[in-house]
Design a protein around this nucleic acid. Sequence first.
RNA 1: UGUCUGAUGGUGUAACUGGCAACACGUCUGAUUCUGGAUCAGAAGAGUCCAGGUUCGAGCCCUGGUCGGACAACCA
Length: 577
Amino acid sequence: MGSPEEKKESIASEGDIKTTKAANFINNLIEEDLAAGKNGKRVHTRFPPEPNGYLHIGHAKSICLNFGLAQQYNGLTNLRFDDTNPTKEDVEYVDSIKEDVQWLGFKWNDQELYASDYFEQLFEWAVKIIQSGNAYVDDQTAEEISRNRGTVTKPGIESPYRNRSVEENLDLFYRMRKGEFPDGAKVLRAKIDMADNNMLMRDPLMYRIIHADHHRTGDKWCIYPMYDYAHGQCDYLEGITHSICTLEFEIHRPLYNWFLDQIATSDYRPRQIEFSRLNLTYTMMSKRKLLKLVEDKYVSGWDDPRMPTISGIRRRGYTPESIRNFAEMIGVAKRDQLIDVSQLEYCVREDLNKRANRVMAVLNPLKVVITNYPDDQVDELDAINNPEDPNAGSRKIQFSKVLYIEREDFMENPPKKFFRLFPGGEVRMRYAYFVRCNEVIKDEEGNIAELHCTYDPASRGGNSPDGRKVKGTIHWVSAQHAIEAEVRLFDRLFVKENPEDVAEGQSFIDNLNPDSLIVLPKAYVEPSVADAKPLDSFQFERLGYFCVDTDSAKGKLVFNRTTTLKDSWSKIEKAGQ
RNA sequence: UGUCUGAUGGUGUAACUGGCAACACGUCUGAUUCUGGAUCAGAAGAGUCCAGGUUCGAGCCCUGGUCGGACAACCA
């Protein structure tokens, strides 16, 4: 067990997921536990979302961590819905969460589990804690409880109901369950210490009365356990060994352990370990605020391709592999992390570069007439589908007299290092011919309407027998063969690196990027993509990666830009200014 | 304010019981290329928040600061 190399190991899982994990501090803790022989040397983790919203990229990090760790130590991972608050939760979210976890490529142990499955056991344990004198029913109002909890500098005041007899507490608790009291009339509290410096330990609530239907238990219950009381006990019931959560729960750990000590009957204990949550530049990660974006229609829904939700990212064209690699790359630690979104973009590019077939598309068309090309002739040329993948094969593309090229691939007065088309200049039409621009045709307003060019028949396939060099190669489509498609260009949703960075009286809404979505209703793509299915990814040569949107239909293709290609020209262009 | 917690190149993570600070991305060169993409080769860039201490030797240990973050709901 010496060198760092030995600490890396290859992990294989159910599917074809294979990653190399670098050790992180959680690995070290787990290995300590294993070495100490704790919990029968098992590793069993869980991913415990509350079904009150869609999962986002931050959850993806947590999913990869929890499932990844289990795979690494030959353990298991449970998917458990933390559904203890019926007023906020919904099956819509349950379904989306399951889909997202599966899509990411992970398989949870057995069936999905629910905190609500354990309500009866949780109730019984609460009775036990009351019987041991460590919990009581409090009649104070929410407002009184909050006031009497004290402040960070002042200890709290004990509730006048704190010393009720066990019998009275039991009686009241059973009656709470029966529904004899209205919402808020009573709560069950743990009897710990109203003077504890950690305010969570000042007699925390265990149960509150909520007369609301639960998405799974219906109207069976009108009292619901609080997170702190439910979470650790659920871990205990499921035999979880390592309960991994984010940093904000650190302060809950003493309470997590306190509750466990009340009910444990053996040495077995789940261990809570906290890591820092993911923050991304130009990205909002708060579920509450994402919900606002959806509800107030700033985006088209939870799966809007600009959303950092897993469903949004999926629709945008990201692959599960790219997200897993991203999670691996950013690592796990306890210091706050703010990752540059470009890191995420790098991960999709890297993945899509290997798997996406190349295709030509023209987003902002400029008409090109090849004056010396016969009117009715059509030339079929070979084009390689993916130079990174020999198995991807090749296809035929059509060349004819009238073409479209990208408007920005032509400049009337080009700067020095511009090696695309300009008056008198020659470029290569990818996979086709050398083409020279002879004449620029303008409309009455002086806008460039079309280009008149000539081609060199000897350069068929892209090389000239005379060996002359043409530096620029541009993409194109044949006007009569191309099919129309809608293309949606996405950009970051916020203009500020930190969307929360706002002036007095403003909110993150003010930082929304007005240009985060640009729709090109009439772009041209080569006919080979006509039958593409939603979520199929392509590289539009020289432009970026695009995937077919779920709004797409036969004859009415819609593409989402996943991300652009790395663009060193724009850097040169900027430097030249 | 209290508690908890963290601080290592531009960013993110490493550095086993102290032993020349490593890796990835980014940046910059150069090669190659029918995608200004990809690929390949190479370089620059931190002396580890600060001040003391222990030690032959400190990013790791000790003391005292500084700065950042989290939490302080009948949410999770």
